[in-house]
Design a protein around this nucleic acid. Structure first.
Lengths: 203, 203, 203, 203
DNA sequence: GATGAATGAGAATTCATTCAT
DNA sequence: GATGAATGAATTCTCATTCAT
């Protein structure tokens, strides 16, 4: 691997060249099914239906592919939350929507996301990293409407994410249960200083 | 890499064989200084002061070394939580101690921790990941002394763990800050229904 | 060594790709000159004038190269026997030609043949070993023109093959002698009920 | 592997030291179950229930173990045939006994014998090789009582052996059938110039 | 005499990258 | 523009052999 020029050449300046999408989609699938160890350029080229040579036409090296994937995941994440940026935080339904969004985002391609993010962490410009979570964190306000400190926002988002991730990783059978979702909402609301939502009677 | 037998052979059943410790310590150092890319068996053997052959006497393959490191990290969580077991959960100092113990585990070697956690998540089986939490979860009680439901206990333990892990994985600069520690304690106490610890004035 | 896909990939379906021939020829030479012990992939690649990587493009692992050599040897038997197929079995000259063809196959490289045969026996599956004999066996008739029973045909073909193989495996110095050839022909003709060819005066 | 002193040291000059037997028996088993590839000193020591060090007390190196095994197989083979040395060859029952002896000898440990013999061929003194088959071959006489030439004897023994071996290797279902045995006897008797035994009516 | 932990040269295999077609 | 065969440095892993206890 030599230097890097991010996405190299960019034919007709249209970054949206279909090939790039195909490659990144294949990369996500491959990462998901084979893990980082099985993620090699030959396998990727095959899954993407292009030749290795073509891979190198669009990306300067393998890391760049991972990085692009990571950036793309971040972007998707940020976009999903963009709508709720200035939202009314006291609104329970909205909080629940946030949890659901998280659960959904986390639902598929766990390994792909992890590897992509890890690649980003390992090789990309650190400053770029906050980009994805930033908007979400900045929009969080407590029960009094005061914005959370960056660290508090970090704790909240990662705590919720961590509980969900653990449920996935540990193969918990309650992953899609109502109670699990409720407890996640509780956790978030209590941390933000809202009154504790009442617990439902056990099913 | 073939299958695996975790720690292979275990000479004279004295698992505490110094060599294993030496290797794992060297692994952590190497990971820290050279990153995952520079983490190869020859370099590791050299840094550990043993031959490659010896590496393979104690570990079936390279992944197993990372996994052992990961298990260590995992043990740190479990140990931290275990301290809570007999504890009076209302005791703020104790909760804080638990968090603090964890945060300073692994000697501050963030990169090593990161790689170790990644290895653990990538290769451990789900059942193993949950191991060690059971007793902790069963002993958790809320502010009124009522035991938490299994799902609530799961959410609490994994949420705290998730936030800590994310700080490690994302190489957060506030990992060892007072505020981060405070926020983690807040999260746990609020979820259990205790009064929110006051936030200190920002430094 | 993992599983195997026999000849892997087969670029542009033109199996006749010169490289495979070059590699197998180099393998036979190397086996002949260095024995099975000196038969390693680096040496083979060098002698073949290709890179190790290229070796692995055409063969999934080292064993597969030996196996391919073995299959070649096996094909020589089958081809030799196939010549009998339409043939008038009473024709002494033809029988002799078949034996002779086999005996001189593989360019007289006894050590290479030996290793190849060993590889074949060690790794081929039983069904493959029988392949190619069926038609030969069905066409065998005794001196009266009556077809041989399947078992009798089996005994004849494998007996002749066995004697030839043993001469190869045991590095017999008479492998290419006239007397050996004569005795093989005798064996076959007597079993089929033909008059015994006269023995020549010893040289 | 350095030089070689065959069986090294020989404690109390009694070659029959039980350990040697144990090791050779384990070697035969291991060869049988794992093939030549899986035949390594560590595995052998374990199966034999001794330490590697002990292996090296009795054998100068790995090859010597294989060679000893080969020599032992040869000896057993020779011993089995010793009784029939001067026999009345016209006796059909005796011929049949020879075939049975072969079939029995070949019955078990195919791979072990093959590997052992191969090792002998590859590493031992070529002159030593004929030792096992020699006595048998020398005792063969044709229908007129004249001894067979060495090559004729070789062809006969290896042809019969080859047909049996092929039946084993190709997983033939008639391996233990009467007809198969009959045909082998036919093959041998016809080659020796006896009248062809009548074929039985098919079952 | 026996043990088995340690050694380390050597071998197999992988895979990012290039470049002639 | 695309292809995919070829490259070969780098890495993982094996296993015969030694030797301190």
């Amino acid at each position: 691997m030599k230097a890097a020029e991010k996405t190299r050449k960019i034919p007709t300046q249209r970054r949206s060249h279909a090939t790039i999408e195909v490659v990144l989609e294949a990369a996500a699938q491959l990462l998901e099914s084979a893990g980082e160890a099985g993620f090699n350029t030959n396998a990727l080229a095959e899954r993407a239906g292009v030749s290795v040579g073509t891979l190198y036409r669009y990306f300067p090296n393998k890391q760049a592919i991972l990085a692009a994937l990571g950036r793309r995941e971040h972007d998707a994440y940020a976009a999903a939350h963009a709508a709720m940026r200035a939202g009314e935080t006291g609104d329970l339904a909205l909080d629940r929507a946030v949890i659901r969004t998280f659960l959904h985002a986390f639902g598929g391609r766990t390994k792909a996301r992890r590897a992509a993010v890890a690649a980003l962490l390992a090789h990309a410009d650190p400053a770029e990293l906050s980009a994805g979570y930033g908007p979400v964190e900045m929009s969080l306000v407590d029960a009094d409407g005061a914005p959370l400190s960056p660290i508090a926002a970090f704790v909240l988002t990662r705590a919720v994410q961590g509980a969900m991730r653990a449920a996935v990783m540990e193969d918990a059978d309650f992953l899609h249960s109502q109670e699990f979702e409720d407890e996640l909402v509780r956790l978030g609301r209590l941390y933000l200083g809202h009154a504790a939502p009442k617990r439902r009677a056990p099913t």
